[in-house]
Design a protein around this nucleic acid. Sequence first.
DNA 1: TGCGTTTTGGACCCATCGGTCCTATTCTTC
DNA 2: GAAGAATAGGACCGATGGGTCCAAAACGCA
Lengths: 218, 218
Amino acid sequence: MQIVDAAAIVMGRQGFQQTSVEDVIREAGLCGKGHFYHYFKSKEELGYEVLRHQFDLFAESGLAVLRDPMLAPLDRLDRFIDWVVESQAERGCCEDVSPCGALGTEMAEQHEGFRRHVDALFERWTAQLQALLWEARPLLVDDFDAEGLARFMVATLEGALFMSRVKREVAVLQGIATELKRFVGSHVRLAGCPEGTLGARSATIDVERRTVGTESGQ
Amino acid sequence: MQIVDAAAIVMGRQGFQQTSVEDVIREAGLCGKGHFYHYFKSKEELGYEVLRHQFDLFAESGLAVLRDPMLAPLDRLDRFIDWVVESQAERGCCEDVSPCGALGTEMAEQHEGFRRHVDALFERWTAQLQALLWEARPLLVDDFDAEGLARFMVATLEGALFMSRVKREVAVLQGIATELKRFVGSHVRLAGCPEGTLGARSATIDVERRTVGTESGQ
DNA sequence: TGCGTTTTGGACCCATCGGTCCTATTCTTC
DNA sequence: GAAGAATAGGACCGATGGGTCCAAAACGCA
């Protein structure tokens, strides 16, 4: 629906509260208040719709690559991270790629209902990543924790998106994305790692690294 | 000042916009509008003050450990991460440890002035971490990027705080903090790593990990 | 063309909120 | 204890915004 598109745009720019119903109407083009309230029970209902709409966009154009059957699992992950960076760059860091981003945060803080909704979006995002990691487990070290790693990725990306928005530049996000790829790469088995996967293309350096595994660290 | 304290509390709970000047007055206890506008030019000015206040708290009780002269650099980092998790746990995930968190995000979205302010807070936080990493560089691999790593840590923590707030549970933050420690640990040289530092205490497993360094990954 | 139904648009209502201003009260100082 | 400054407290104003309601236009149908 035209109204939801318009609302998503203007709310992405100004936030939920800061956007009046009249702003939405103006952005949508041709209608008065009556028209709006003919389609929506309240501004709140519109809010839910916008949230859903944003997630659908995110899922269609971003999350979809996580399931691309033509690519190896870790390549998909790689592509997905690139997609996040590129999308944010396109939007000039004002709007948000993630449906849980600026708008989501703000709305989650308002009603309990919104909060649950945003939480659910987080879960869906995490679940997708987790599924991919699970699929890729033959390539990964034995004891890796798919859920933990998935959450870690979501948190890092979300935080980086947030920083890049506040700073109004993508460079930060870019750098963090590269580090993140490296981190994921550090869970890849050395043996049996197909070429072109994570870590490989992201690392600009060729010194290998190791974590400290045991207590002594020696 | 009493008013700022009160404002910080109630705004941490409800957000900046959602908090009316009268809410602040009520929370502060004993005064009417005139009293408030005697001390503050506007609600906006109060906003700046609250932001500053929150950062001071954050700097005093959290960032301070990054400079503790009694601890080795990487231990300080470790402690700092623990502090973030514990503080958030104490607050029950409603308010925010970070001055750039929920409140900061929301405010950054409003005026350009707030945005610049929050950006500056990010920079100060990042700079502290960067300084510590620089100090710890004898322990770290040669080519590590202090600024990049510092930003990565800030982004991850911020994202994790955000997630834990939306989910209303610390467990998520806890898990991510552990992963983050491991990530930092992966930058530590194997030789010459003193015991008790990062990675050592966070890793529950004793399998060593490596990143894929070169293109082939083989 | 005329009638009835649906859609459109905007005037209006009411609550909220930031901010002003004016009156009490208290506190100080002589 | 009186004069005056400092502070408290709240009535009020104007603007904004969510939501209602009604009139006008458009459309279908005979």
